[in-house]
Design a binder for these strands. Structure first.
Lengths: 329, 329
DNA sequence: TTGAAAGCGCTAACAG
DNA sequence: CTGTTAGCGCTTTCAA
């Protein structure tokens, strides 16, 4: 077990002081002699020296660590989000500490505390609570917070999110243009997450304005979706399902495929597709694709700005979604 | 900008020394008076004190950080893997620093170096190189390395992976039992990744033993898969496609669905499905599902063992895959 | 039962 | 152009 070489070792070997080496490391060769510079460079290469980020951080108050907390890492949304964030942050010399709240608000709280302990310089969060006060301690600790996907109330943090309202209204109009008499929104419980509410309200506005029937199914683990769908198919009204997120869409499709329900003949279906795979299913599913990677990139950029400015630009960046028109309506 | 409270602040406030507070923090109240203990507890709560991991790490040589490097974070495989790793590591009090090599071997190298700089205690890696020497510097730096998904040559690190050979042979036999005359393996270039080779060899063994025709398509971005498939369909031989990973499977399915090729009438298809979504596609795709989350958990457990033992158990843990028999063959 | 003091590996005044 | 010195926030002998 060979011990690590430190700045002192390098200094000694090069016959200079730690200060000089430190200056070299930080590119502050204001007027350092060519020779010392060369000498240090050689010694560093020779000894295979790498400065300890820990020590640097402790002293300089810069950890170059950004904490990322996602709601559920096994969701495809997270993958693409992390990809985008990682690319931007990596280029800027930052590292990500990624954590998975696993949809538990208590766990999220715990994770945020741990991130603070690690002296992260900022946090990018897909919030589980919609209550801004829940995140007060970050503000108190003076750690910049950038929200992705979901806003909190009141909106006191910068946010990067899909343009939910526009996209949802567009697809609602698409539904109506196909003369559906009833639109059934299937969503996880509305009250937990603002985004869900936003999407529901958007559909509602369009459908109500057109005087068609609107139904809401708030699905939980207990909901027997299969049964509800059978009922809808049995009803005389020409019906379209709107899945308010990727998970729900996949669940609905699984049911329809399993029961071999003809799409769109017996029932229409559309919604948000995080997996971007709905082209493959059935006749091709008309759906809304979010530009998740772009959201990640923008969130990272926002973070970088906060860090540079030392201030909070409390603005919302809205990323347009892409409507994929296929044959399920 | 209120400055952080440090151990000194707590000590002062509680009227004891830093040592005592430190002892309290580390649960070393060998024989500390009930009162001091109480007092410190109160003050910590009151001042909202949280010890700095940075400083602790610097002094105690324990960072509780584990580096994870995945080949491509936008792959579904990564999501589930990270989920598994995160659960186990989190419970054990470790944090993950996750990095995305984005399929670049140079970037992977760079990332590993950065992880060393961060003083991670161990690294879990989905290796991009199959040459063990590529990872010598980790061994030199005395950082435990656990491989997932892909082995290197020679096998000098602990590895957690799907039981590729067994699963692949089983599905190859499934193909043969349906009287296909030709099996076409579609894979990304074999030589880059051992796993790909393993899977190909497994199919080969079974198909050759049964004296059926075996064809290999090594697909790159330039390959016109669509054309190749048309040719296969046109051929008089009854043909089954075997996709050697999830990405290839999805690509093949996209082509088949777009061109409305009847499955399995005109061509059979099966393979590895990282997305676990093949139930939804076409008639339902017979496929191999890896227990990716379990692989992550096992990898994390292996890492924990290495850390505890301070030694390398160079063993391979093999996780069985699940064969989903559906209707695409 | 507790404290003083040294030091982890690094940076940054301040002085030459 | 370079070195001395004093910490960053913590842990750990050693001594009381």
């Amino acid at each position: 077990m060979k011990k690590n070489v430190t700045i002192s070792d390098v200094a000694e070997q090069a016959g200079v002081s730690k200060t000089t080496v430190s200056r070299y490391l930080n590119g502050r060769f204001g007027n350092m002699s060519k020779e010392t510079k060369e000498r240090i460079k050689e010694v560093i290469a020779e000894m295979n020296y790498r400065p300890s980020k820990q020590a640097q951080a402790l002293k300089s108050k810069r950890s170059y660590l950004i904490g990322i907390v996602v709601a559920d890492i096994s969701n495809m949304y997270s993958s693409l989000l992390l990809k985008g964030i990682g690319e931007v942050l990596g280029k800027a010399g930052y590292q990500m500490i990624i954590m998975d709240a696993a949809n538990s608000i208590e766990q999220e709280r715990e994770l945020l505390d741990r991130l603070i302990d690690q002296s992260v310089e900022g946090v990018i969060l897909q919030a589980l609570s919609r209550d801004a006060h829940h995140y007060d301690h970050l503000k108190k600790a003076n750690i910049p917070l950038v929200l992705v996907d979901r806003d909190v109330e009141p909106s006191i943090f910068p946010l990067v999110t899909t343009d939910n309202v526009t996209a949802t209204k567009k697809i609602a109009e698409e539904i109506l243009s196909k003369n559906y008499e009833q639109v059934v929104v299937v969503s996880e419980p509305l009250k937990d997450v603002i985004t869900r509410e936003l999407r529901y309200e958007a559909v509602k506005e369009v459908v109500i304005a057109a005087k068609r029937k609107l139904t809401l199914i708030e699905a939980t683990a207990e909901t027997n979706l299969s049964e509800r769908i059978s009922e809808l198919i049995a009803s005389p009204l020409k019906t379209a399902l709107f899945a308010s997120n990727g998970r729900v869409l996949m669940e609905l499709l699984t049911i329809l495929v399993n029961e071999q329900v003809p799409i769109p003949e017996d029932i229409g279906i559309t919604g948000y597709d995080d997996w971007n795979l709905s082209a493959l299913v059935g006749p091709g599913i008309t759906s809304i694709e979010q530009q998740t990677k772009v959201i990640g990139e923008e969130a990272a950029n926002t973070m970088l700005e906060c860090l540079k400015a030392g201030a909070y630009p409390v603005e919302t960046k809205t990323i347009p979604a892409i409507i994929q028109l296929r044959k399920s309506l």
